[in-house]
């Protein structure tokens, strides 16, 4: 048994395996398949101030080694989360992190103020990188000025661990990472989905109702690894890596590239038990390589 604990800011995680927002529901969806408490943490679906219906169907297209989605942040709003969902999941013995999304600066602030009071939510993941909403969303994450602005406002309003989730759809992700670090983010997570598109040659129409959508799955892994590597060189705060992690070797690769923790996303759709398996296999990997603490792997790339 290796020591799997890692720290993000002041928050200690029992292991570095978290589940990615929008791919794990709120947890109960997966209770038949795994023990939620075995995970380092779960990041729940993107939550906005008001309820959102999301985009029209079709919202999904399978692509080589991955998928496009255009869900568009369908959720019942932060009040419904607090009143109807939180009471049913707060007993989990793992960190529950809320992914906060919005299209206006004030909305982000109002949402995080409400989340401050929830005892069993020790952190938020600020989503400034959703490609599937018309206003705001990714727009906040694609320039240093707006990323700075939203992080500053949220930092002032939120008192616990603040993770900012970055978009890969930028020229220099390291610059954005540095900007949010400067505003007091405790950590950055990357990557959100890569903007993409799918076309049906028979009907000559786009497959998604929104024409473009967000690409995820193993096809984005090399991009994500490269970005985690670059960002972890550029900032001092811990980096949470994700993008195409399907198994424990993928997870190890992200740790070696510089990630302190990882998130499992689209892989949950292929094997709903995969995140717990990765925890156990990571443990076995450490034992096999005579590594006493998983921390030793972080940034351990030999170049």
């Amino acid at each position: 048994m290796a020591d799997l604990k890692v720290k993000i800011g002041a928050l200690e995680f029992k292991n570095p395996v978290l589940t990615a927002s929008g791919t794990f529901g709120y947890g109960p969806e997966f209770e038949d398949f795994l023990n939620i408490d075995s995970l380092g943490g779960i990041i729940v679906k993107g939550t906005t101030l008001e309820a959102r219906q999301g985009n029209a169907y079709p919202r999904m297209a399978e692509t080589p080694a991955g998928m496009l989605n255009a869900v568009g942040l369908q959720n019942k709003g932060v009040d419904a989360f607090i009143n109807d969902i939180y009471p049913n999941i707060k007993h989990y013995n793992t960190h529950i992190i809320v992914n906060v999304s919005g299209s206006k600066l004030e909305d982000y602030v109002t949402v995080v103020e409400k989340l401050n009071d929830l005892e069993h939510i020790p952190a938020i993941e600020l989503n400034i990188s959703c490609p599937n909403v018309k206003q705001g969303g990714m727009a906040f994450g694609t320039s240093c000025a707006s990323a700075t602005e939203v992080t500053k406002a949220v930092r002032a309003a939120y008192h616990k661990t603040l993770i900012v989730k970055l978009s890969p759809n930028v020229t220099s992700i390291s610059e954005i990472a540095k900007a949010v670090e400067d505003e007091g983010a405790d950590s950055v997570s990357l990557i959100n989905t890569v903007l993409g598109m799918a076309i049906d040659a028979e009907s000559r129409r786009p497959i998604l109702s929104t024409i473009t959508g967000g690409l995820s799955g193993p096809c984005v892994k090399p991009i994500a690894l490269r970005m985690v590597w670059q960002v972890s060189q550029a900032v001092k705060i811990p980096v949470i890596g994700l993008g195409g992690i399907m198994n424990f070797t993928d997870a190890v690769e992200f740790l070696l590239a510089g990630a302190t923790a990882i998130q499992v996303g689209t892989a949950n759709f292929i094997d709903p038990a995969i995140s717990e398996k990765i925890v156990h296999q990571l443990d076995a990997y450490c034992d096999n390589h005579r590594i006493r603490a998983v921390k030793e792997l972080i940034g351990g790339l030999i170049v």
């Binding site: 791919t23 529901g25 969806e29 997966f30 169907y57 079709p58 999904m60 869900v71 949950n268 709903p272």
Partner: peptide, 22 residues
Amino acid sequence: ENTMACGIGACLCCVAETDKGN
């Protein structure tokens, strides 16, 4: 028979419009 990814209510890809929303 909407197209699906997860099949267990996690991805919200398979929605139909109903009188009570998606």
